[in-house]
Every structure is written in structure tokens, then in C-alpha cells.
Amino acid sequence: MTANEATEISVVGGIDTHTDFHQAAVIDTVGRQLATEPFETTPDGYWRLLEWFASHGEIIAVGMEGTGSYGAELARFLHGNGLTVIEVDRPDRKARRANGKSDPVDAYAAATAVLSGRADGTPKTRDGVVESIRVLRVARNSAVKARTQAINQIRALMISAPSEVRDRFRGLSTKDLIGTLARSRPTGNLEDPAYTTKVTLRRLARRYQALDESFRMLTVCPGTQTGRPRSLCDEQPGRPA
């Protein structure tokens, strides 16, 4: 196919995404399979994939699996270079068992899903403020879970702790309990269960405090439209962080 012939036809692309490489394929507007090729998941690989697509004609759209995972960066790249990217669902397990797993077949299937209209979803761009908040929420949510686990462990240890430990902290609120335990300076030896419990409770309390600080630093500033994390709330525009 000459360069002039390539510019006269329209094609649809399909991509089966992976960790180290993406399998690309192109079909024409009547569904005929034209070519398939693997490309590395690197900036150079993305440029070569884009050039390879262009060499087959005018790209109407590109169907891609995994735009929110393995293909997230490639989807951003293609979108940034003017291509329409369509989210394609992975073939169901029954279909995979019946037809076998094949990267070229899956890439062609992604392109065919776009051509047939079966796939028409626009993937999230995963950029800007919305993506920044999503990333922050991943760490924030894990901090919340770990913080809850820490206080649950503290309360569980308090139930079975020797009375001298249990009675000392009985009735304290969570805030007061954490603060008191974190400031404590137990003395003794590790053969004494009461001392070991006190040391463990202090470490768990300090872990809780660290996680609580992490949670607050990752919480979006209230009342802001910029979506800045709380740790940046007091920063002035243009002021170095």
C-alpha cells in the first residue's frame, strides 16, 4: 500500500493492553483485518504505535481494553494526539474459554467492537484536578482503614490487658486515650506482660497519630474548587512549596 492509498482509506484501531507491551490491530470500514503488531509500553513505543496507525489510513477511532489500568497512559497519549479513544469491555470468560486467549484476536475484537457500535463509551481522561483528587483518595482511603485497624487493636488489647493497665485508661475518649498512650513512657522488662502491653499500646497509639496526620494531609480543602489537598491549603499562589 502506497502513502497516497493509505490516506484515501479510513480504518479503525484496536488495542489489547498489557504491562510490558500493547497489541495493536487495524481493520477497514467493512471489518477486514489489515494488520496487527505489538508495541512496548514506553514513550518511544507509543510514538511508533501512533505512526503505525497513521501508515494504514485515517484513524476513525481506537477501541482499547483497560483504559483505567494498563492502558491509562496510552489512552492519554492517543487522546492528546487527536485520536478518539473508545472504552472496550474485555471478552467474557466463557468466550475466552471457547476461543482461547490470543492478543491479536483480542486487539481485532476491540476494533470490531468499535466498528459495530457495540462499544461506544468514552474513557475518563485521567488528567487535571479530578485525576489528582482520585490519586489522593487512594492514599487517603488506605490511611482511614489502617487508622481504624490501629484503634481496634488498641481496644482489643485493652480488654485483655492486666487490670493495672486497663483501669488506668478506662473511660477515656478516643482522642484522650490516643494522646495519653502516645505520651506514656513505660518502664520494665519484656518478661512482664503489663510492660509489654504498655509498650505495644504506645506504639499503636503513635501509629494511629501518624495515620491521622496522613489522613488530614490528604483531605481536600473544604470549600475550594481547586481540589487542593489540605496540606496545601495555607500555601499562597506563587509561593514555593
Rank of each mutant, 00 (worst) to 15 (best):
S69V: 11
E131C: 00
R185H: 14
N141R: 15
E58Q: 15
L157W: 13
G117T: 14
R228W: 03
D89E: 13
Y46W: 14
E191W: 02
L204K: 08
T42M: 10
A241K: 07
R155H: 10
G31M: 15
R207I: 03
Q23F: 04
R126C: 01
G82D: 15
A194S: 13
K198R: 15
R32L: 05
S10L: 08
Y46S: 05
K175C: 00
G82T: 12
G31E: 12
R140G: 00
A194E: 09
I154E: 02
G66S: 11
E37I: 06
D106E: 07
Y208M: 06
K101D: 08
T41R: 04
T174R: 13
P222M: 07
R126H: 14
S163H: 03
Q209F: 02
I178K: 05
D106H: 07
S55H: 12
S55V: 11
L211D: 05
T29Y: 09
P222N: 14
N81I: 00
L50G: 03
R185T: 10
S214D: 06
A95I: 11
L50K: 07
V114R: 04
P162C: 03
S173F: 08
A109V: 00
D92R: 07
G63M: 10
T180R: 08
T219S: 10
E51T: 12
T180H: 04
R183C: 03
A111T: 03
A98I: 05
V62P: 02
E51N: 10
R48L: 10
P104D: 01
L232N: 01
L232H: 14
G80I: 05
L218T: 04
G188D: 06
A156D: 07
T174G: 10
V130Q: 08
E213T: 11
T219H: 01
I86W: 00
R140A: 00
P104L: 06
C221V: 01
R185D: 12
L50H: 15
A161D: 05
T42W: 11
R96T: 13
T42A: 04
R76Q: 12
R126V: 06
S142W: 00
I86N: 01
R207Q: 06
G14F: 08
S55F: 11
A25N: 09
G80Q: 00
E191K: 02
Q153F: 03
A98W: 01
Q33L: 09
R96P: 01
I133L: 01
G238A: 11
L218S: 01
F169R: 14
P229T: 08
L50A: 15
R206A: 07
D234Y: 07
P43N: 12
P38G: 13
G31S: 12
R155Q: 14
A139W: 04
H18T: 14
